[in-house]
Design a protein around this nucleic acid. Structure first.
Lengths: 227, 227
DNA sequence: CGATAGACATTTGTATACAATACCGTCAAC
DNA sequence: GTTGACGGTATTGTATACAAATGTCTATCG
């Protein structure tokens, strides 16, 4: 129901190319040609161009000079920066949401939070469900913030693979804490306390950042062990 | 040398349509068709579509339902939000710049600042020169911040007409304070003091916001006087 | 008189052909 | 041996024709 029917070819191209880039099938730094992307997504070059423009805007694809296309190659600093910007902007979104959220949205958040709790408390935890509900949770907040600007900017900072990789490596207690954050956010919204909401959201994101960083370290160690 | 040769038709279209929308020639809420925009910019619909995509991303153009194009109509809340986001992000940019700026860039900032001072102290103040140098100043900082993300996001929040309208209505003492801010920013950068730089930049933007708001009030009064 | 269905006009979406431009390898001259 | 110019090739940029979708107007039926 979520990623539903994108009938337009340019949307199909967007999804396919995005997946192609993010799944790691394409190497970072690798060149992409419009024709190749057209073959991959099964449409002509015209909608591919539109899709590429969008992905370029999200910095998933970069242009050399101002012509050829390449898969973006993120540095550690880029990742840090993403989390810092997310912290600021999602914190701001939470702050606005606390002021603008409706009763109905609050109820929705509660419902999502229930499902999320169940996913976390299952053994083993249902990571896929966690991710889906987590995303839904943040989407509702963004909607409640009622800021077209934020709605345009924030999604480009939340690369699902980063979120996913973070969650995959979460320990159970970290998942539980994440779920508790959601509960506390709902409390802050219900109290219409913008400062509280911002603070909770900020620490929520920062914790995710550190969890992500640790997985980077773990991966490094694993690679070393494999040598 | 700055806005130089955008030879690509899609860039020509972008500039023309942007000007068309921002100059007020097109009424907010008015419908735009791709063909009309193609006529205006003297190119075919294909590059127009790319230009429209970009402008859509900047929220200068919006899509109704999911097709037709309209000139965006900003509410007061939208403007507030723009200044808040600018404050956060330009503050962050200044903070990063304080850590990453090169000696050469510092010298450039000093040069720009000299020209800016001269423009402000002339009588009457040279607003056009002020705007040009002000823009250059902020561009250098953004470059010094070395954050591709910020470079992608920030320009969409800085609508030149807003900046221009703000500056047009600045009183002389406000212009002087703005120039002093720039000097202080340079000092903060030279000291490599990220917190200082952020604070100065934040108040710099907030002052601009209030100057802008006051012009809105003045305009309202003028309109009333004209009735 | 109001509502609704259907035809028609308008507008956006896509594909393809062709033009312009950038890249890269080769060859020649110094 | 290195550098620079030339030309072929790969790739992006633009225009146009056509298809799909959306909005609008009118005529007819309840």
């Amino acid at each position: 129901m979520e990623k539903a029917a994108s009938q337009r070819a340019s949307d199909v191209a967007y999804d396919k190319i995005r997946q192609f880039v993010l799944s790691g099938t394409a190497e970072p730094g690798e060149q992409l040609t419009e024709e190749q992307l057209a073959r991959i997504s099964g449409v002509s070059r015209t909608p591919v161009r539109e899709a590429v423009r969008r992905l370029e805007n999200e910095l998933l694809i970069v242009r050399s000079g101002s012509k050829r296309l390449f898969v973006a190659d993120w540095s550690a600093d880029d990742i840090d920066e993403m989390f810092i910007l997310r912290g600021m902007l999602e914190g701001h979104a939470a702050s606005r949401a606390a002021r603008n959220i409706t009763e109905q949205m609050l109820e929705e958040l509660a419902t999502v939070s229930d499902v999320l709790d169940a996913a976390v408390q299952a053994s083993p935890p249902d990571i896929a469900a966690f991710l889906a509900q987590n995303r839904r949770f943040h989407d509702i907040i963004l909607e409640a913030a009622r800021s077209p600007r934020l709605s345009a900017i924030l999604p480009t900072l939340i690369e699902q693979p980063v979120v996913s990789r973070t969650a995959q490596q979460y320990r159970v207690d970290e998942l539980l804490q994440s779920a508790r954050d959601h509960r506390e956010l709902i409390a802050a919204f219900a109290a219409r306390d913008a400062h509280w909401a911002r603070a909770v959201m900020t620490s929520h994101i920062r914790r995710a950042f550190h969890a992500f960083s640790i997985t980077a370290v773990r991966r490094k160690e694993q690679r070393r062990a494999n040598d």
